[in-house]
Each structure stands twice: as C-alpha cells, then as structure tokens.
Amino acid sequence: MPRGLTVDGFPTEEELKKSPGYPSEERFKRGPVAVVECVQEIPCNPCELACPRKAIQVGVPITNLPRLDEEKCTGCGICVARCPGLAIFVVDKTYSDKEASVSFPYEYVPLPREGDVVLAVDRAGSVVCDGTVLRISNPKRNDRTAVVTIAVPKGMADEVRGIARIRGERIG
C-alpha cells in the first residue's frame, strides 16, 4: 500500500494527480507533455526560467508548487535537465499504436546507446518492463545531465520513470 512521499520516498498517484504540475489525461492524449513530479513545497524555481514558452510557473513565494500550463507545453523537454531535483519527465502516450515514450534525466556512466534494450523501472526502482532507447540528448545547455528517451508498452507510460543503471565499463 502506498504510504506517500515522506515515507516511501516517491509520490503516490494521488499526490501526483492533485499537484499542479501533472497533466490531465486529455492532454496526454494530444502528444508529448512535461510531467512535473514536484509535490513538496521547497524553495526552488529553475524550471520556471527553463521553459521558453513559460509553460511552468512558480511565482512568489518560491515555495509554490510548479504549475504546468498544459496548453503552452509542447513537450520539448528542455526543462527535464534543468530541474535540480530530476523531477521532470516528458511522456508521449501517442508515440505509436502500441508504445509510449518516456524521457527522463540520467546522470550515470556509462550512458545507454540508441537502440539498446534496457530495463525500465518505476518510481520505486522496480523493473517493470523492457524499454528501447530512442535517443540520448546531452547538449551543453544540459550541463552534464543527459536526457534519455525510451519506448515502453503504452500501458506502462504512467509507471516507467527511468531505467536500471547500466553496469560496467564501456569504451567508446
């Protein structure tokens, strides 16, 4: 039974859905969108400046929860690497007939490679399905936080939030 962010360490579906950063199911149906999983009032606002379309607002005081304007958000993903809490994802439930894509920040080495089949994990770190790496984005503006996008079965789009760390050395 989920006990909430302060006991389990990750937000429950209920905590997420009542937060102003979580998109509506309707918005998910229209394509990629940012999912801001920030449900605790902490003094932090880089997400607000990150978005070129001003789709994320924190305002005053700085402890406000980030509010996603899901109409302005295009799911571009610039915010994903800018959130110091690594708490923003981009989910595209329209990626294909059978698959959704999930983008998440990834700060481990080695990085996965495009086309790799990886172990997709949920918020509790449990492996829930396989995923296929679609792309890895790590431009300079990400400041060394890579953003990995994987394709997973459509039904897993609300669960998958990362991958199991890849072990061992990899040259090149």
Partner: peptide
C-alpha cells in the same frame, strides 16, 4: 524521511 522528496525519489528510482 528527513530530506527533500525529489532527492528521495531520485534514489528510490535507482532502486
């Protein structure tokens, strides 16, 4: 948990 939820979520996700 004593610290920020985003930090705990990050380490939980890592298993």
């Amino acid at each position: 948990i004593g610290g920020y939820g985003v930090h705990s979520a990050k380490v939980r996700r890592a298993g």
